[in-house]
Computed example of a mutant assay.
Amino acid sequence: MAPQFDVLRIIEGFGLAGYWTWEFGADRQIWSPGLRNLLGLPEPDGAPDYDRFLRLVHPEDRGRLDTPIRVRAGTLGQHRFRIIRPDGTLRIVESRGEVLHHSDGRPRAAVGVVLDVTDREQALRAVRFHAARERALAVSGGVFGFAALHGEVMDLPEWRALTGLTRPTIDQGWGRPGEPEGTGALPPPVAAAIAARRPYRYSFTTRLPAGETARFYECGAPVPGEDRGGGGGWAGILVRCPAADGGEHGKEAEGLIGGREIRAARALLAWTLSDLAEASGLSLSTIRRMEEESDAASLRSRRAVLTALRGAGVVFSLVDGTAMAVALAR
């Protein structure tokens, strides 16, 4: 057996390819075993026939293929279409052929190859669907998914468009693509969760290209199995928060956050007094006095505590203009 036929046999062994030939003078056609297998035809199953091949093509795609008359006349192109096997299975295939000519230019034969591209097409369809969904969530809902797997960072085109960040910047800080305003430091409990590969959540404020600021809530979790081999995979979501902390009622709402609300926020986070003191950069006694409302806290200390709590995902919302609700962003 010639080496080229050994190569063809190996390729057809994958079950995703087959070839055919058609000698016009003798009107003799040959279908390779790989093509019969791809078409779902038993062997032997009668003489190969181009018309029979066309009958296996999905009715909606049949008009795109070259007719037998056109093939004999020397026209044979490249096509992607669906076939329906005798058992009802639908596959997506791609065909490419060539017409061979006599020395006087008359067509004498045609040869072609058929490839099963079903898995590739389905994968591309899934990618397109995922991209469309990501765009819709980002544009309509301010929701951005992110992932870092096998050492590679998922591109975030919608996030880049919103924040003006470059791809290299996101690559360097994928878990926190919008650097928090100020020092950019993560709250200690959040940093500890990331170091220990535990799920985390917090919120941060970033400055947008037009100069305004926006608050985002971030939730991330390690991807199971990705921590083996030293890679460390993560996936999560970024959600743009409504402007509940600012706005026309922002200062009024701030004044309603007292010791009870701070204790509730700390309980939601399962933080100790020491955790809040560390996250806010204040002393333990200051935090205790603030929660007990035994002493008027300075504006700076108050802001430090609220910034730490909000940075960990706590949302303070004014209800009916008189009460303060405390919740975790989700």
Rank of each mutant, 00 (worst) to 15 (best):
R300K: 15
D227W: 08
E181A: 15
G141N: 14
R176D: 11
L238Y: 03
L90C: 10
E23G: 06
A195Q: 14
R120M: 09
E12N: 06
G220V: 01
R240I: 01
G220D: 02
G40D: 07
D116R: 08
H249W: 12
F204S: 01
F146D: 00
R91A: 01
I262W: 05
A136S: 14
A26V: 10
T118L: 03
F144Q: 03
A264P: 06
S140H: 11
R135D: 10
E94A: 13
Y200G: 00
R80G: 06
E158H: 14
P222F: 02
V139G: 05
D227P: 12
E291S: 09
P222W: 05
A185W: 12
A47R: 14
T118H: 10
R167Y: 05
V314H: 03
L282D: 02
S274F: 03
L309T: 05
R120H: 12
W271H: 00
G313Q: 00
L186V: 00
R288F: 15
S32D: 05
R85F: 04
I92S: 04
E291Y: 10
V326M: 00
F316R: 02
A214G: 09
A17F: 09
A264K: 03
P42K: 08
A193Y: 06
I237F: 05
D295I: 15
E43I: 10
P44V: 01
